[in-house]
């Protein structure tokens, strides 16, 4: 080394370039974006070499299709519509969707689709209790029916042990939103959700604001539990943010683990969590597929004849009216 001339130049311009791997449309106006604002703060972009995106996220579609791999963070409804309307030959890349939704993939897409889930290094259960629990979710019936909300809380209490809840500090962030994602707002009593929290867990619940949750830098000894029916987004920003600060998830129930999936790769996303990718053995008869009765609507949406072949991923212009028309029709059937 030439000791007299050895210097290091520090430049952050390259970091700017790497962080704009998802170019948004020129005319995309975040302030007016109904969909993203509605799902805030759960719907926010994250960085990843696996190109994590939301289909209905305002990106330039032609730039998305140029990527080698896409990981769709969307929930069941956008995914259903995507597989219904998108042309499989138009998409060169490999697409990863959450493994909970493997049943939605049409045959012609199976060769391109792999599956993922999120894993945490720390896992909690009755035998390994957290000191704290942080629950997030949304309180309206478009995003979580009261009964679904209650069931999620019952599940949490059962996994951690009802008798253990008193000794665990529980915080809850559940913003309420008007139930008008696709128009036709009706009043509903969100206290039903609050009541469920207090009845299924306990009375002594902390209720931090989002800005304080996001500013906290240490979530070790914390179980993160998200109440999310996964209809609109499956892979949320809080999940990644809280896990990256040291939180953990509930331990997997080994008896329910499907043998259909074979892990192919795992990418670390932080010191504390990762994303796992799987291949799916479609020849295996998955006995748990029948457990998706509540999701029968989505199979029906897939089956409905669609006359709208225009591939347009703008929420405001097309998606909203599409959802209203086909989702409503499926429910009526």
């Amino acid at each position: 080394m030439n000791k007299n001339k050895e210097t290091r130049v520090v430049s952050w311009g390259y970091d700017l370039i790497r962080n704009i791997f998802l170019n948004h449309r020129e005319d995309y106006d975040f302030q007016e974006d109904l969909y993203r604002n509605y799902l805030s703060p759960f719907m926010k972009d994250i960085f990843g070499t696996h190109t994590p995106v939301y289909i209905f996220g305002g990106q330039e579609i032609k730039l998305i299709v140029e990527k080698n791999m896409l990981t769709f963070r969307d929930g069941l409804l956008p995914l259903t519509i995507f597989f219904k309307e998108a042309n499989v030959d138009q998409f060169a890349p490999i697409i990863a969707i959450h493994k909970d939704y493997h049943f939605i993939v049409p045959d012609e897409w199976k060769k391109k689709v792999i599956y993922y889930d999120i894993n945490s290094k720390r896992k909690y259960s009755k035998n390994s209790l957290p000191k704290k629990i942080l629950i997030t979710g949304m309180m309206n019936s478009a995003l979580s029916e009261p009964r679904e909300f209650e069931k999620s809380l019952e599940n949490l209490a059962q996994k951690v042990g009802v008798n253990n809840l008193e000794k665990i500090e529980i915080s809850c962030f559940c913003p309420s939103k008007r139930n008008d994602l696709w128009g036709g707002w009706e009043e509903e009593n969100v206290l039903r959700y609050s009541q469920a929290i207090f009845q299924k867990l306990k009375l002594d619940i902390k209720v931090p604001e989002w800005k304080h949750i996001i500013q906290e830098s240490d979530y070790t000894d914390t179980l993160y539990y998200e109440i999310n029916n996964g209809f609109f987004i499956k892979d949320s920003f809080p999940l990644h943010h809280i896990l990256a600060k040291g939180a953990g998830l509930l331990a997997d129930d080994e008896s329910l683990t499907s043998s259909q999936f074979k892990i192919k790769n795992e990418i670390a996303l932080s010191l504390y969590h990762s994303i796992r990718f799987y291949d799916c053995d479609y020849s295996t008869n998955d006995p748990f597929e029948t457990q998706v009765e509540d999701l029968e609507y989505f199979k029906q949406i897939s089956a409905i004849e669609s006359k709208n072949k225009k591939l347009n991923f703008r929420w405001e212009e097309w998606y909203a009216s599409y959802i209203k028309k086909y989702y409503s029709a499926a429910i009526e059937k």
């Binding site: 970091d15 700017l16 962080n19 960085f47 920003f237 943010h241």
Partner: peptide
């Protein structure tokens, strides 16, 4: 990131 000069990092970038 370096927001004073316009460089914004997406969540998860620094770890990567």
């Amino acid at each position: 990131g370096a927001n004073f000069m316009g460089v914004n990092n997406l969540p998860g970038y620094m770890f990567h």
